[in-house]
């Protein structure tokens, strides 16, 4: 059986121009490989500038890789294959209010995703959006709300609804919990765990909160200066880390 997501020798480098022909190469991500099964959660941890967000952006298709391959269900994903990516890999961002369009209602934003990716008629689209809203714990009435009318927790729920509205296989969350209050954060984590159970979605988290990672992740990937330091199941990494860096990061939360 093929794995849901396989990443092989994926790398990313930028060229920093210093003159007309001259330039220096900046390596953001050295070649790395990992894989993800259906219904699993992968957490990517590391410092700022360690390349953890770069991995998330490459998988979501926000950037083109410089080398290597990403395979979804055994089929290689091209960087330009937007329709395919958009249906199967969705992303949640850190600042929920800023990632929603303030000028159109919540329902319309969700419907846009459905309209461009399915050939359903208007009534089915509407019904599907309302159902999705209910799944994330919002009411059908929220269809007509504008983003600013909702609280921060509800905004984050809308972002999650936008991610699951196309029934994707993978959701990439880049620091999605940092700006939430503790009680709201716990609610959102519960919601994500429930959705994972019901729909069998795989999650990729980018986070630096040790507590949350230990709680939700099946596998952890540790990044340091663009290199993958360690990759393995959470239990193994927490209890028997190979590298001192991993131990510091996971056990004390300090370096």
């Amino acid at each position: 059986m093929t794995k849901l997501l396989e990443v092989e020798q994926l790398s990313k480098s930028y060229r920093h121009k210093t003159g007309l022909f001259s330039g220096t190469k900046i390596v953001a991500l050295e070649p790395l490989s990992f894989s993800l099964e259906r219904g699993e959660t992968l957490a990517i941890m590391g410092e700022t500038g360690s390349g953890k967000s770069t991995i998330a952006r490459l998988i979501a298709g926000a950037e083109k890789p410089s080398g290597g391959e990403i395979r979804l269900n055994g089929k290689p994903l091209q960087a330009t294959d937007y329709a395919e990516r958009c249906r199967n890999i969705r992303m949640i961002f850190q600042d929920s209010l800023r990632s929603l369009n303030p000028q159109i209602t919540v329902g319309k934003q969700l419907k846009e995703a459905v309209r461009f990716n399915t050939n359903w008629d208007a009534a089915t689209q509407q019904q599907h959006v309302v159902e999705t809203l209910r799944k994330v714990g919002l009411l059908p009435d929220h269809y007509h709300f504008y983003p600013h009318m909702l609280s921060s927790g509800q905004q984050q729920r809308v972002c999650i609804a936008r991610a699951i509205v196309l029934a994707p296989q993978i959701i990439v969350a880049d620091e999605a919990f940092v700006s939430l209050d503790p009680s709201i954060r716990a609610q959102i984590i519960n919601l994500i765990l429930d959705l994972q159970q019901d729909m069998g979605i795989s999650f990729i988290f980018v986070s630096h909160s040790t507590e949350i990672v230990k709680h939700v992740a099946d596998k952890i990937l540790i990044m340091h200066r663009g290199k993958m330091i360690e990759f393995g199941p959470t239990q193994v990494l927490v209890n028997h880390p190979k590298e001192t860096y991993t131990r510091h990061l996971l056990q004390t939360g300090t370096l």
Binding site: P182, S183, R185, A186, Q187, N190, E211, I212, K214, H215
Partner: peptide
């Protein structure tokens, strides 16, 4: 409980919350 400081919460279980 919500801050997950308590080690007794099983991984992937639902968190107690307000």
């Amino acid at each position: 409980e919500m801050s997950l400081l308590d080690q007794s919460v099983a991984p992937k279980s639902r968190l107690p919350t307000l």
